[in-house]
């Protein structure tokens, strides 16, 4: 089984790669993990992970600037229903639209918009650090406890158009989407690769997920 981690020049690729590798090696059949932006390799992947740090528009442009990358993602994820996980901005990119530094269109795979967090003054922005989540019944949260902590760092959040696509939330102080899912497409606002044991559970569950 191949797992492709998409490399479009986003910062913390090494962290994501090492976390997935570490969890995968504990499986009876570890994945062959490739870090790639090659459309052919992406189309042959059994699972796809899209990490992302930085601004929404920059990430989107970086993806569009790699020839064939966006088309190969669409072909795999939308047409062939390959299980997909977006992390942080990689999750926000699933939305229709983002208002971060202007207005940018996203992939439009999960309906909704990415908006700036509005919070009272004593709540610093970015929302940075460990915060607890509440999740609904979903494979991604197998063996997780309600209220467990995950590592977040973001100033914008995914406002889902349909409640059913939000599978976990956190509070800062208003409710914020912490994870999304629609069919074979999931994503987390928090960083599972930086969330210690709880993060490893999420990665494990994604590797075992058969949507």
């Amino acid at each position: 089984m191949n797992l492709a981690i998409i490399n479009f020049g986003s910062g913390n690729l090494h962290s994501v790669h090492k976390a997935f590798e570490s969890v995968s090696l504990d499986l009876s059949n570890p994945y062959n993990i490739i870090v790639t932006n090659d459309p052919k390799e992406i189309q042959s992947a059994d699972k796809i992970v899209l990490p992302g740090v930085g601004a929404f528009g920059d990430c989107k442009n970086a993806i569009l600037n790699i020839e064939g990358l966006h088309a190969s993602l669409e072909a795999s994820v939308i047409k062939n229903k390959v299980p997909f996980m977006g992390i942080c901005v990689g999750m926000q990119l699933l939305a229709d639209l983002s208002y971060e530094f202007g207005t940018h269109s996203g992939f439009g795979w999960i309906p909704g918009e990415v908006r700036r967090i509005t919070s009272p003054k004593e709540y610093k922005i970015p929302h940075m650090g460990w915060n607890e989540i509440t999740f609904s019944d979903h494979k991604l949260f197998d063996n997780c406890e309600q209220g467990s902590d995950f590592y977040f760092v973001h100033s914008f959040y995914f406002q889902n158009q349909k409640n059913e696509h939000s599978i976990a939330t956190t509070k800062y102080p208003d409710q914020i989407t912490a994870a999304v899912c629609k069919e074979n497409i999931c994503g987390t606002q928090f960083h599972p690769e930086k969330s210690h044991r709880n993060g490893k559970k999420i990665i494990h569950n994604f590797l075992e997920w058969k949507p």
Binding site: G11, N12, V53, G54, A55, D58, H154, S155
Partner: peptide
């Protein structure tokens, strides 16, 4: 910040 994101 523009290149790597404020979070970094």
């Amino acid at each position: 910040a523009n290149k790597y994101g404020s979070s970094t």
